[in-house]
Design a protein around this nucleic acid. Sequence first.
RNA 1: GGUCCCAUCGUCUAGGGGUUAGGACACCAGAUUUUCAUUCUGGUAACACGGGUUCGAUUCCCGUUGGGACUACCA
Length: 510
Amino acid sequence: MREVRVRFAPSPTGALHIGGVRTALYNYLLARKHKGTMILRIEDTDQTRFVPGAEEYIAESLGWVGIQIDEGVNVGGAYHPYRQSERKSIYKEYAQKLIDSGYAYYAFDTSDDLEAMRTRLKVAGSSNQQYSAATRMSMNNSLVLSEEETKNKIDAGETYVIRLKVPAEGEIQIQDLIRGEVKVDSSQIDDKVLMKSDGMPTYHLANVVDDYLMKISHVIRGEEWLPSAPLHVLLYRYLGWEKEMPQFAHLPLLLKPDGNGKLSKRDADQMGFPIFPLTWMDPNSSELATGFRESGYLPEALINFLAFLGWNPGTEQEIFSMDELIEAFSIERIGKAGARFDIQKAQWFNQQYLKAKSNEELALYLLDSLKAEHIECSNEKAAKICGIMKERVTFTHDFWMQGKFFFNAPTSYDEQVIAKKWNAEAIHVLTGFSQEISKLSKLTADVAKFTLEAVTANLGIGTGKILQALRVSITGGASGPDLMMTMEILGSEEVVSRIQHALKTLKKTI
RNA sequence: GGUCCCAUCGUCUAGGGGUUAGGACACCAGAUUUUCAUUCUGGUAACACGGGUUCGAUUCCCGUUGGGACUACCA
């Protein structure tokens, strides 16, 4: 196999879609697997859709999920520049080459002309309304104009585009690594615009020129590109690069969780899950979209989840680190059918990764939340809290969301528990328990348990019967992590104060 | 409409001419647990349909149906 050089080539028109992250991931896995090179190229040839900040967002997102770029924008490399807008003159050169060799031509048609052509064909009942071999001779281009006329128009400053002269017929085959042989008749392909009237190339020209110049070995991209792949083959052929043409792999699409169609931001919004790796604020609409990171997902979990959407190792192992993915990855094991986006599976992965982390690592997330709330807390205490909570959380922010009571005494109590469990027995036990605890300077989980059992035994009441009441008095809630450990973390003073407060405010309810 | 792609439990998928069609998520039940969660055990659940080929097709071929992508001077 030739040296593996792959590229992820997003267009900076907004936040990076999660499907794009998966495409980047597969490229990256192949590159690393074969000790190749991962390239980041920015396809910013559409000046009208440029969104400030998008390029930075893409780079930051890839960094967050752990996809390292070897070559490209911000990193540099031998084949720079990696921003297509900075390669304008290069494309022009090759477009000219195509014109000179008769594979492309100038077209002066206005958008009205094109519109008229399409409606004319539609009315005539034609099955495809394209600018192609069938129609090009009735349009306004250098094929029908004399050389002289064409030159005059260009010299006069008339705007024009350069179109590819696609043959009237002939089968074009592409060999796709995922789908095998795909054949299309060139009569189905239109005379695609190669150079736009603003002097910028279209995707088709730019990607072929760049992939060739950057010595790309594999083009791994979404299935939406499959229909235009034959066109790209044609370009390689006409440019004389067919031998160096990269291998293609068109990835199955990421589908909506329910129903049908490509996964979109709308679906994500409706169903309440993120679709962008990082939170993104659209500079035009000021609309805010929360990212996976900000929603409490771990990058390792997201990557693991994404890797399995359309690919699998063929074994029964589910949890894969990036290194393990690299080891196990192969294009042959990528599926063909589109994959529904199942956020529940993503949550499960997140839970698995969260549980596997050390308390100290987890504490960082809790400390982050606390900082935002202006609450002071030592690393040790935070780690301890995370330690007893990690079996029950799904997201990084759950430590705070579900553990607020460690920092704020309850201001209200779970009504169901009060109704069922807050009775004379409970009050007796809690009163006695808090008296005993108040004598202690240091409260540990063991001591708390021992003390509680002593008090209940003394009163002849089963410990289990009042435990819920004790929990609600301390946390306000009906469920939570181990109560004894919770009391240890809170400390005797706080425990006593909370029980007293509950006793005082809840007494009247019975 | 045209071109192209796709089709195994609800979801992600393994498998492949002869299998009790396997796993994971989700769901349900039981066990453990001071609560909830975790964990453990068990369970429900799939080869879209119709033709071929074959001794035998879920698997190979064709068609149908269904779904998807593309159909811009966007990528």
